[in-house]
Design a binder for these strands. Structure first.
Lengths: 237, 237
DNA sequence: ATAATAGTGTCTTTTAGACAATATCAC
DNA sequence: GTGATATTGTCTAAAAGACACTATTAT
């Protein structure tokens, strides 16, 4: 590439990876998609799924490839967004590797450990993740991703990404409760959600969940941002 | 770097740059630090200040170097934070260059067009910026930076970064008004600011600004986040 | 005095939060 | 009926916003 440069400067060669913080909720527990490294460096440690970005590939293309190849997930089924880049010179012992972190949210339904999944990917609860040793700086990338997700629940409609296409308001409330480790008043939550224009749309149907009164079924609305926001309890956690 | 890899895979070589959205307010107008490109590609167009990241340099190190070399600014005097990365394969005609965008905020005082500034850097009002043709995808990086700054004013103490070490609440209010293109009620603004714990600290001194009653002088407090937040008028703009 | 900006107070509307009351199902 | 969850309503407190009023300077 330096051949085409008009300035007599040969910039240092970096490798670029994308690394994904893929989150889902399983039985009200926040889980992270991890792979078990089979090769050096950091053999045996857990890592975030990620790939080297190819020479002609967009970053989003590399993300979609990672979801398929490493996660066994269908990219069109989930929300993803860029998190931040991590570029410390010593973050990868193999050389200078810059990683662009992405946050992805999967609904519980799609498939936890599908057949498409290559040998290594699996869901690990965040609680277990925190007890393990991570490869590279992936613990920091994970922390960034989890905090971003928790924060975006406040002012965006991200919570619906954790739900299937149709869901009840109790399920949606469960997303907030699991992500924030706090309980929310069902009545007040309903009022806020239904007053936020474009957050959810009622389908008119009801679902009988075994016990209690059947709940109305909703779908995600058009809005991306919530106004007014739903605030976390800054005390708890 | 590929020599040390244990996997027989040679990842494509990227160049990595940092590009800075440096914002300041001059006479209540939002201004952006731009350089006039003297070389191909995009010779003659304006661009954000930026450098290639060196082989052993951190990203933040490259940002500080850019501020000094390109902007003639002293990095310790200003706030900066990572924005996002831009990696489209065709964003730079010279080859595959990934840019990590940073947002930096300068107080008016430091020096607009210092002697330290290398030939090219200067402040351009955002209004003028939008009428010009930008090099690379810098118009998009700028848009991202300006929107980030506007959004962060709502829930963080970022506004104080636009002010000198000591400032009046009218000056602080002026930051919000200029950034959001809306006027805020002086009384209500004062109440919100002084009720947000850690936003500002009174120095006890007063400043005579020529006309009207002299204003109390404040310094930035310890807090980084604002609670409750100060909301924009979502209608205007 | 007037003009100008700083700062305080008051009232109304909106939102948040606690919590009671009612609704609709399974059993 | 009881038990469970859904949904609505009511009351209080906090915050937002409009706006009047007072304070302190220069001229």
């Amino acid at each position: 590439m330096a051949r085409k440069m008009t300035v007599p400067y040969n910039p240092p060669a970096f490798a670029v990876t994308v690394d994904l913080v893929v989150l889902t909720l399983m039985q009200q527990e926040l889980c992270v998609l991890v792979i078990q490294r089979k090769e050096a460096p950091y053999r045996g440690r857990i890592a975030l799924p990620g790939v080297f970005v190819r020479g002609t590939e967009t970053l989003e293309g590399a993300v979609r490839r990672t979801l398929k190849e490493e996660g066994g997930l269908a990219p069109q089924e989930l929300h993803f967004e860029q998190l931040a880049s991590f570029g410390h010179p010593k973050r990868d012992p193999r050389g200078r590797v810059l990683s662009v972190g992405y946050l992805a949210i999967a609904a519980d339904l799609p498939s936890p450990d599908d057949a498409r999944t290559r040998e290594k990917a699996r869901w690990l609860s965040l609680h277990d993740c925190e007890k393990r040793s991570w490869a590279f700086d992936h613990a920091e990338i994970l922390r960034t991703g989890v905090e971003r997700a928790r924060a975006k629940l406040e002012y965006s409609t991200l919570a619906t990404s954790f739900c299937a296409r149709e869901f009840t308001l109790s399920e949606l409330r469960g997303v907030y409760e699991a992500m924030w480790n706090q309980s929310l008043d069902p009545g007040n939550f309903r009022r806020k959600v239904t007053n936020s224009p474009g957050f959810v749309e009622a389908t008119g149907e009801r679902r009988d969940s075994g016990t209690g009164r059947p709940a109305q079924i909703y779908r995600a609305g058009e809005a991306l941002l919530l106004y007014p926001a739903i605030h976390r309890d800054t005390q708890s956690e």
